[in-house]
Design a protein around this nucleic acid. Structure first.
Lengths: 235, 235
DNA sequence: ACAAAAGTGTTACACGTACACCCATGG
DNA sequence: CCATGGGTGTACGTGTAACACTTTTGT
């Protein structure tokens, strides 16, 4: 077939910003880059798009390679395109951010890639423009979580309300009133109370909840406004 | 310099979704595609990224070519990547949406490109996945305008409150109470009342307002919540 | 004088926020 | 028995929504 003539073709990389939560802090899954340039430096997990796959497929493939996980919450973040962002050759990078349950990833795969979880607060220096990508992902997460129930994605199927509260408090670096928080949360009708309690994190134990999957997908677009004064968030 | 070997390079297109407002309805600036395939079919204005420019620069260049406008509100929307989206050759498309004052574009340039303004409601069929792009842009605009003061970008420097109200009503396909609307709007402190009135659209005439540019850029991130029940908006 | 759009104020309700005590359990 | 974290109810204030009439002026 005829092609578009006289136009430049460029490499397209897909980079994944992978968030986790350890119960207290947000973490980021990073790898030691396996090839030159910047070999052995810390980097986001990424790869090049293949001829027959979409960006979404590439992102899922890359996440699967590193973590063994499928059906993960992922969202296209932004496409980075500074002509000099990769010193080797013109490359544009399409970024995806992912929220995963930190318990579930396959440790063996991560070892193969020399991957490690870093506290978001104590991130090492990253190659190229990857720090900028993380910063943007963080802002997007803050922005989105203020109105959409996405932070559940960072927790196991069963979770407690105090766990959720820790998630919100960590993201916005603030403290929330637990009475108001749980009332607001329960009023959404998204949570289904379970019989058992989580006895690991307290003596009394906290009831487990599960997501009402149906309502979750239906109400996903609902504006939740969990954060009292959502000022000064970035887009 | 050494290149990344064994990887596919692809074409990168930039497509612009250009919104305008004629006082009553939202419009879209479309062009008749000038080359095969799908020559003469309606399409978004676009072009290929050049070796030495970023996507943002490409988008600005493309908008300038078509409208003669600089410093226009633009925002990266999404990158489309279905391997079959362009039948000629693998091409990924990075989309930007732009809000312009429909009075200001250069008609001569637009003629050269066989461009026309279409009512958003009466859009013709577009090539490739361009209709999907428009749909996504529309949703993004709804989503964003519910909380950020961006619709001003569609109006001239001077505008009236009823004009603004028409903008919001058109976007959400609803009607708003003018008393509540103007109170909420004025309470932001973003508007500066002018002496003159617009006598074109009513007998009594409506006062012109201008944006307080400084507050506008400062408060851009403020959540305005102009829409009473912003349910069922899409991300 | 009448039609058409601009402009303005009050009230009721809902939601968000602040706040303090009891409960269950493991050590 | 006591320290720790979990769970619940109320009162107040702010902000949002509903609502109707007067003003201006062109025809």
């Amino acid at each position: 077939m005829i092609k578009y003539s006289g136009q430049t073709r460029v490499l397209v990389a897909v980079d994944c910003i992978i968030f986790g939560f350890d119960g207290e802090n947000y973490k980021l899954l990073l790898i030691q880059r396996g090839f030159a340039p910047e070999k052995k430096k810390w980097s986001l997990m990424g790869g090049f798009i293949q001829p027959d796959e979409s960006l979404e497929q590439a992102a899922s493939r890359i996440l699967l390679e590193l973590t063994g996980l499928k059906n993960v919450y992922m969202e296209q973040l932004h496409t980075f395109s500074d002509p000099k962002r990769d010193p080797v050759e013109r490359t544009i990078a399409v970024t995806y951010f992912a929220l995963i349950d930190i318990q579930k990833y396959e440790k063996q795969l991560s070892k193969d890639y020399h991957a490690e979880w870093f506290l978001l607060k104590e991130m090492p220096h990253l190659i190229f423009d990857h720090e900028q990508m993380v910063e943007m992902a963080r802002n997007r997460l803050r922005y989105k979580a203020a109105m959409h129930p996405i932070l559940f994605e960072l927790l196991p199927d069963r979770f407690t309300i105090p766990q959720l509260q820790a998630l919100y408090e960590g993201l916005y670096d603030t403290t929330l009133d637990k009475r108001n928080f749980s009332r607001k949360l329960l009023s959404t009708g998204l949570l289904v109370k379970q019989q058992e309690k989580d006895k690991e994190n307290s003596k009394k134990g906290a009831f487990y909840y599960k997501l009402d999957k149906e309502k979750y997908t239906d109400d996903f677009q609902a504006f939740l406004n969990f954060i009292p004064k959502p000022d000064k968030l970035l887009s």
